[in-house]
Computed example of a mutant assay.
Amino acid sequence: MFTGLVEERGTVRAIRTNAIGVRLEIAAELILTDASVGSSIAVCGCCLTVVELGDGWWAADVVSETLNRSTLGSLRAGDGVNLERPVRLSDRLGGHLVQGHVDGVGVVVARRDLSDGSARLRFEPPREILRYIVEKGSIAIEGVSLTIAGIDAIGFEIALIPHTLAVTTLGALRVGSRVNLEVDILAKYVEKLLPPVASAVGRAS
């Protein structure tokens, strides 16, 4: 479990094809201070397992399912990636609960850079996850916990402060960029519970 607060922006060092998909090697520093083989690390919102450690880098195996259902399949050597270690029970929950399980890939359809250094971006998500997105609710975009600034029938908007633009990969997003999206897990639990509750209320009346 993660919080969507990116700890470090790493760099893709190499991508090597293997029997299950690819082995992704990432250069990093901070997140390696307590990492070991078997540790979990979120890469642009995808929870991956450390399978190899080197001097200033680590590697994870990424299966075809993950490559096909996320933006990891389009990564190239030299690309920047958002990195976060799992949350500890003693940590502050500065963002929101993020599982590291991508629900779908969205597309940037508009970007407006403002004079104060912030930016307003509009995204179009897969239609099937739009129902879980609400104004002022939380969403993880490329592993970054963000607040929905506006929503309509086909998309939503995010306001990004200069700090987020500077320390994450979101600053490089342009119209046409694809992004990993994970909706708030609480919304899916509520949806799962509502039909039985509604049926019980109907029977009682």
Rank of each mutant, 00 (worst) to 15 (best):
Gln99Arg: 10
Trp58His: 08
Leu75Val: 05
Ser74Gln: 11
Leu72His: 02
Asp91Pro: 04
Pro125Ser: 07
Met1Asn: 08
Met1Cys: 07
Arg120Lys: 12
Ala35Cys: 14
Thr164Val: 07
Val201Gln: 11
Glu65Lys: 11
Gly95Tyr: 06
Leu72Val: 03
Val63Pro: 02
Gly78Ala: 06
Leu5Cys: 07
Ser199Gly: 07
Arg69Glu: 15
Gly73His: 04
Ile185Ala: 13
Glu182Lys: 08
Ser205Arg: 15
Leu75Met: 05
Ile129Ser: 12
Glu124Met: 00
Val81Pro: 09
Leu30Gln: 13
Ser36Asn: 13
Ala187Val: 07
Arg131Trp: 15
Gly100Gln: 09
Asp91Tyr: 06
Ser177Ile: 00
Gly137Glu: 01
Ala198Val: 11
Glu25Phe: 14
Ala28Val: 10
Val107Cys: 00
Ala28Glu: 10
His101Asp: 08
Ile20Gln: 11
Arg131Ile: 11
Asp55Pro: 06
Ser115Thr: 15
Leu146Cys: 02
Val134Pro: 04
Ile26Asp: 15
Phe156Cys: 02
Leu160Cys: 10
Ile26Gly: 14
Ile26His: 14
Ser145Leu: 14
Ser205Trp: 09
Ala27Pro: 03
Ala172Asn: 07
Leu160Met: 03
Leu93Gly: 09
Val22Asn: 07
Ala14Asp: 15
Asp61Phe: 01
Trp58Val: 03
Leu114Tyr: 02
Gly155Ala: 05
Trp58Tyr: 14
Glu142Phe: 00
Ala200Glu: 09
Asp116Gln: 13
Ile185Lys: 12
Glu52Phe: 00
Ala60Ile: 00
Arg88Met: 10
Ala172Lys: 04
Asp55Tyr: 04
Val144Ala: 11
Ser205Asn: 12
Trp58Leu: 15
Ala119Asn: 08
Leu160Asn: 01
Glu84Met: 04
Val22Gln: 10
Phe156Gln: 05
Thr164Leu: 05
Val109Asp: 12
Val107Asp: 00
Thr66Ser: 15
Leu146Arg: 00
Pro162Asn: 06
Val197Pro: 04
Val105Cys: 10
Ser64Arg: 15
Ala19Thr: 01
Val50Trp: 08
Val50Lys: 12
Leu97Ile: 15
Gly137Cys: 03
Ala149Cys: 08
Asn18Gly: 05
Thr66Pro: 06
Pro196Ala: 12
Arg178His: 07
Ser205His: 13
Val167Asn: 07
Gly117Lys: 08
Thr168Val: 07
Ser177Arg: 01
Thr17Tyr: 02
Leu30Trp: 04
Arg92Ile: 04
Asp113Gly: 03
Arg69Gly: 12
Asp79Gly: 05
Ile20Glu: 11
Ile139Pro: 02
Ala153Leu: 10
Leu72Arg: 02
Lys136Ser: 09
Ser40Val: 06
Glu25Cys: 05
Glu25Thr: 09
Ser40Lys: 08
Pro195Glu: 13
Ser40Cys: 13
Arg76Ala: 14
Glu8Asn: 12
Ile41Gln: 05
Trp57Leu: 06
Ala198Ser: 13
Arg9Asn: 13
Glu29Gly: 14
Arg9Cys: 14
Ile154Leu: 03
Val37Lys: 01
Gly21Ala: 05
Arg178Glu: 12
Gly155Met: 03
Thr147Tyr: 06
Gly117Arg: 08
Arg120His: 09
Leu130Asn: 01
Ile20Met: 07
Thr11Ser: 15
Leu173Lys: 02
